[in-house]
Computed example of a mutant assay.
Amino acid sequence: MRLVLSLFPGIGLLDKAFEQAGFCVVRGPDLLWGGDVRSFDPPRGIFDGIIGGPPCQKFSTAGAILGSERDDLIPEFVRVVEAVQPRWLVMENVPQALGHPAIPRDWFSFRLRDWDCGGHTARVRAFWTWPFMALVSPRASGQPSQSVMASTFKRGGGQYATDKHFLPGNLPIAEYARLQGVPEIGERLVEHKAGRAFAVHVLGNGVPLAMGRAVAEAVNRALQEEAA
């Protein structure tokens, strides 16, 4: 079975990576689109896997950002996993969420950097997997770009961004989408006249596509080894 439930899908960058790896992704409710996982009661025995990243603003050092939910929804991810009883799972968040008390101790955790996965940026995310340890990526040489984050739009192009080594907040939307590995999504955001704050927020909240692909491919390998 290849049916996967995506929790907190946002604009769907992690979903896209798993779809490209051959999984059929069903998106669960998301506050961005008017849904709420807290009232979500999914069926048991339908989904092979669960993927997703609960909102990170509760833990992120970037602080409050436009449209953010500061509630801790990691327990909701765990609740849905317990209800669905999938064969496997992947959860992602900021590294500051490592050690969260609600996360089961038998979930494996590791960090990935976008650049090490073949991406463009220095973005680092934490991942949890079960029942297998999906990936520990080797360090890549070279100099990555600064990271696209949901709060990037607030920084402008002034000295503050330069001094802090942040990605400027006044670049074209298409550039943020390119850095996240999804130029076609940037084109759609521009085509539909999305505001800069919204566009950068949804792009920066997503897992860079190269990082998502690395995880999806690692899950594929683990499942193949399990079936062998």
Rank of each mutant, 00 (worst) to 15 (best):
S147G: 07
G169R: 02
R123D: 05
L167P: 01
R139W: 13
F110G: 14
E175D: 09
G157Q: 04
R113T: 15
L112A: 13
R125I: 02
V182H: 04
R139Y: 13
Y160L: 13
Q143I: 14
S109L: 01
S145N: 12
Q85K: 15
F166P: 02
V81T: 13
P104V: 11
N170L: 03
W130H: 15
G99P: 12
W130Q: 11
R113W: 06
P131L: 12
V81Q: 08
I173L: 14
A140D: 06
G181A: 09
L112N: 02
T162N: 03
A134Y: 11
V81K: 12
S151A: 15
N170F: 09
V124D: 09
A126I: 02
G99I: 08
A177W: 11
G118W: 10
V148N: 03
P183V: 05
D114P: 08
D116I: 00
P104K: 07
I173F: 03
I185G: 04
A83F: 01
Y176G: 03
V84G: 08
P172D: 06
R105A: 14
G118E: 04
E92G: 07
E175C: 00
A83M: 14
S147A: 15
Q159Y: 07
F166C: 06
P95C: 07
V78K: 09
W130E: 05
Q180P: 04
L112Q: 10
R155N: 05
R123V: 06
A97G: 04
T121K: 01
A150K: 10
M149H: 10
G119M: 05
D106A: 10
R105M: 10
V124R: 06
L112W: 07
Q96R: 12
V182C: 13
L89P: 10
Q159R: 14
Q143C: 09
W107P: 02
Q146A: 13
F77D: 02
S109P: 09
S151N: 11
M133T: 00
A102I: 02
G158T: 10
T162D: 10
T152G: 00
S151M: 01
R87P: 01
G99E: 07
E184P: 04
R113C: 14
G99H: 10
Q143D: 06
